[in-house]
């Protein structure tokens, strides 16, 4: 079995170290890069050490050597950013894992779940709810809600009374108008349409405007 697996993503090249001592790893990595020297030259590389048996000072040595020999920039190792970037986007917004909260989420409280969230209660101003899927509030939403946390643009936020100070879906942010002229009397849903967050009734045809 190989000690090293090399993969690429949008951030650069990631070398996963599966096993072996530092010397073995270094030798194998050098061999692999030697085979395609032109391809690797000038690229950004991250190292993820799954076996966790290589010391920090060895990495620094490796970083300097690779810069000199192959012109490769090692930008980081075992950093959270790469590991997080490796996670897949949560897709269970139609059918998937869901967490239920049966209480009011108050100012200063933070609710986070890798999936959908249903809150049976209110979300008060100053509270934060973040989910990688949908957020459904069976009450008043006054705080901040972030649906589709790791990038699902089809995620939605719905509430009996949608009065959030800020709404985020995937990488889009919308804030409330500076003055509410009237409070919503009907349940509403927020979703992304044409690259912007829009708010509309659950069933638009049911109500006369």
């Amino acid at each position: 079995m190989d000690n090293i697996t090399i993969k690429g993503n949008k951030n650069g090249i990631i070398a996963y170290i599966n096993s072996g001592t530092f010397d073995e790893v270094k030798k194998e990595l050098q061999n692999k890069i030697e085979n395609a020297k032109d391809f690797f030259s000038g690229c950004d590389m991250y190292i993820v050490d799954k076996s966790m048996n290589i010391k920090d000072e060895d990495y620094i040595k490796l970083k300097n050597e690779f810069k000199n020999i192959f012109n490769i920039n090692i930008l980081g190792y075992n950093s959270d950013k790469i590991i997080e970037g490796n996670e897949k986007i949560f897709t269970g917004i139609y059918e998937g894992r869901t967490k239920f909260y049966r209480s009011t989420i108050r100012s200063g409280q933070n609710v986070n779940y890798n999936g959908n969230i249903v809150i049976i209660g209110d979300v008060n101003s100053g509270a934060e709810v973040t989910a990688s899927g949908n957020i459904i509030v069976l009450g008043v939403l006054r705080g901040i809600a972030h649906a589709g946390l790791n990038g699902n643009k089809r995620a939605i936020v719905a509430a009996y009374k949608l009065l959030p100070s800020q709404l985020r879906i995937a990488d889009l942010i919308a804030r409330s108008p500076d003055s509410y002229d009237e409070k919503p009397k009907i349940p509403e849903i927020a979703r992304i349409k044409d690259g912007a967050i829009i708010i509309e009734p659950y069933l638009p045809n049911k109500h006369i405007w």
């Binding site: 108050r106 100012s107 200063g108 409280q109 008060n124 101003s125």
Partner: peptide, 12 residues
Amino acid sequence: VRDADRIIGKLE
């Protein structure tokens, strides 16, 4: 009211 809300959360 917001601070009271925070306190209630803390108490709970």
